[in-house]
Design a protein around this nucleic acid. Sequence first.
DNA 1: GTCTGGCACTCGGTGGACCCGAGTGCCAGG
DNA 2: CCTGGCACTCGGGTCCACCGAGTGCCAGAC
Lengths: 338, 338
Amino acid sequence: MLSERRLEVLRAIVQDYVGTEEPVGSKALTERHRLGVSPATVRNDMAVLEEEGFIAQPHTSAGRIPTDKGYRLFVDRLAGVKPLSAAERRAIQSFLDGAVDLDDVVGRTVRLLAQLTRQVAVVQYPSLTRSTVRHVELLSLAPARLMLVLITDTGRVEQRMVDCPAPFGETALADLRARLNSRVVGRRFTDVPQLVQDLPESFDAEDRATVSTVLATLLETLVEETEERLVIGGTANLTRFGHDFPLTIRPVLEALEEHMVLLKLLGEAKESGVTVRIGHENAHEGLNSTSVVSVGYGSGGEAVAKLGVVGPTRMDYPGTMGAVRAVARYVGQILAES
Amino acid sequence: MLSERRLEVLRAIVQDYVGTEEPVGSKALTERHRLGVSPATVRNDMAVLEEEGFIAQPHTSAGRIPTDKGYRLFVDRLAGVKPLSAAERRAIQSFLDGAVDLDDVVGRTVRLLAQLTRQVAVVQYPSLTRSTVRHVELLSLAPARLMLVLITDTGRVEQRMVDCPAPFGETALADLRARLNSRVVGRRFTDVPQLVQDLPESFDAEDRATVSTVLATLLETLVEETEERLVIGGTANLTRFGHDFPLTIRPVLEALEEHMVLLKLLGEAKESGVTVRIGHENAHEGLNSTSVVSVGYGSGGEAVAKLGVVGPTRMDYPGTMGAVRAVARYVGQILAES
DNA sequence: GTCTGGCACTCGGTGGACCCGAGTGCCAGG
DNA sequence: CCTGGCACTCGGGTCCACCGAGTGCCAGAC
């Protein structure tokens, strides 16, 4: 069992290592923290902590550094989430307030988060899955060619071309547009399929095929766009990673380019609260030496997407968690307003 | 004046240096290239080339490496554009053919280009400035709230909310929609302002303010969206840059995040043909040790946007230029079809 | 039992001495 | 104008000794 003081020692090691990026020894620890005991005692505690796998020595005659397990304990039991300063909160607010559309909100968020945490920021576009339909528009571009435009409550717009099996009159088009909207506006995307399935029956035989095609395209759009998009920023911060460069940074850059991997990673995060995945807890190999701090955000009370940062396992967890949480809140507010 | 042979020596130096990444000496040169002269002669030629500023020695007792000026001469007079192999061309075609929408085309293009050149790829979204209007749609979301949707011939869709100064009836809306479209569909964005300026006059006094607001929003969208968007990929290839890592890579990553800088860079490229900017020819400081190879692409005969790659000045210019040109052609084809 | 001071030991990192070899510039001769 | 020869330079690698931070352990104090 770990005594209170030993936990305190671990906390001190994590804090010092995060600050200095160098293995920390027993003497330095007692000098920089008021532990009330001598270096020798600390050494004994360190030996225990090492035995338990919370810290490790890079070389025999060097100080200790926290292991993934050590960071985990630190995050779970020793560290809180550090609230941002008033100045930082004001900066966030004013930076995000200038956004003109969804792309801009996401773009600003990713830059903000990268700058605030000095790490790599990842922001997922609000998901369509949990969104509702604000409007469906049908435009006739040519006698047998329609454009389908889908507008979501988060301000996202998707469009698809529809090639009709037969020409489709303006009145039928207006009819379809009206009926479609009356059924799906305000409804969740996941509910749309059953809401529209009997629509073709109410049309004339000649138009029925076209209506079915339009509906098929609509449903397809819903499914396709469930493949989320995301935006990444602050990759230049990777250069602050460590001194053993190419080897460390390369797999991370590669992982960042595989959006699928990141989406999966974000998807695994808890529904509520800040999630931290440390080092090898990340399934993807390239991210084994990084930690991912993520959180859901949304326009209402409920999360529609996630955002987070990717940084070295040696990061300032309380500060990062605070920044991520704060940014998510403000983004949620902005989305709710628009 | 540089004799034919001296140019040949420069070419050999560039080729060897690009291949080995190491300064090349006179002996190695004569062994690997059939220059027909002895190392001593090559040394004399090298001395002249150095005097003229085409090559330089990193250290007194090392081989020579090309300077930016040397690469410039190489690109302008000594190297052609290397056509891709048939297999490569097939790969490009089949890779791009699967794209479903504009985002997908751009996304695939950037991945393709990064993979093909093993460098960082940059693709600009087709510009609205030179595009034409395919359709303008107006939707009523609330009594005094409209949504304006703009669809371009390149498949891009932009939307904006419009808060009306006064409620706007469905009939007036339909009227405005029809008149707007009859005037601007098929026209260039740059022509739109004068085409619509007298529209408000033909409406009732009560609706005139709203019509003006809608038009203002439309024009604003055109202007705002002239700020182009772009997508970047293949940043992991930066790790192949050099051995002196953090210092080299950091400013490049930073520059890549400043999309404005990249857009300006692409904008400076020639209207036709492949443009190469080498090292210090790039205005942005962070890119002083990189070269940018770019080319315009477009759906018709005319360029609507640019794409290119960013890599170390020590790159395979003929191959890179060939790949960039080929990709641009195929993307143009794809866009023309859709 | 727990903490402390003392002590011998380990080992990574630094810096100097040294050598090797690739590459150069120069020169005299073909 | 080209070539072979030659003396010179200098970066990079290797070897080695030294230094110091840090450790583990132990005997003694509280």
